[in-house]
Amino acid sequence: MRLIKKRKAWVVGLVSLIIPGLGHLYVGNLKKALLILPTFISICFLLGLFNWLSTFYGIIIYSITFIGLLIFTVIDPIKIARHQGEYQLKSYNRWYVYVLYYITIIIMLMLASENGIFGYKYKIASKSMLPTLENGDLILSDNDSSDLKFGDVVIFKYPNFEKNPAYVNVAYVKRIIAVPGDTINYNNDQLTINGVKAKYKKLNLYQNNSNNLEYKTEKINNKSYGILLHKNLSSTVNTTVPDDQYFVMGDNRAKSFDSRSWGFLPKENILGKATYIWFSNDTKRIGEKINQ
Rank of each mutant, 00 (worst) to 15 (best):
L100Y: 06
I103L: 15
Y92E: 00
K90L: 11
Y98W: 11
V99I: 15
L100C: 13
L111G: 13
I107V: 15
E86D: 14
S91Y: 05
Y92P: 06
Y87C: 08
E86P: 06
L89F: 04
M108W: 08
Q88F: 00
Y101L: 02
W95T: 07
I106P: 07
N93H: 11
L89H: 04
N93P: 05
I103Q: 05
I107R: 07
S91W: 12
I107H: 00
E114Y: 01
E86T: 15
L111Y: 11
M110K: 01
L109W: 03
L89T: 11
E86S: 13
L100K: 01
S91V: 05
M108T: 10
Y101C: 04
I106F: 12
L100H: 02
Y102R: 06
L109E: 01
L89M: 12
L100F: 14
M110E: 12
S91G: 10
I107K: 07
A112T: 03
M108H: 05
L111W: 04
L89N: 10
E114Q: 07
Y101F: 15
S113V: 08
Y101W: 00
T104W: 05
M108P: 03
R94G: 09
Y96Q: 08
K90W: 07
L100G: 14
L89C: 07
M110A: 15
I107L: 14
N93R: 02
V99D: 01
Y101T: 00
V99E: 07
M110Y: 12
E86F: 10
L111I: 13
Y92C: 01
T104D: 06
N115V: 06
V97E: 06
Y98S: 09
W95C: 05
L109T: 08
N93M: 01
L100M: 13
M108D: 04
Y87N: 03
M108C: 14
Y96W: 14
I103E: 03
K90T: 10
M110W: 07
R94D: 10
A112C: 13
T104K: 04
L89P: 07
L111E: 11
L100T: 15
Y98I: 00
V97Q: 09
S113A: 11
Y92G: 09
E86Y: 13
I103P: 08
R94A: 10
Y96C: 03
M108A: 15
Y102L: 15
I106D: 02
R94S: 13
I107S: 02
W95S: 09
I105T: 10
Y96P: 07
Y98K: 05
A112E: 03
N115Q: 05
Y102I: 08
Y102G: 12
I107Y: 09
V97I: 14
S113N: 14
Y96V: 07
A112V: 03
V99Y: 00
W95Y: 09
I103D: 00
R94P: 01
L89E: 14
Y101P: 03
I103G: 02
T104S: 15
L100R: 04
I107G: 00
I105P: 00
S91T: 12
A112Y: 06
Y102N: 05
E86I: 06
K90A: 09
M108L: 15
N115D: 02
L109G: 08
Q88K: 15
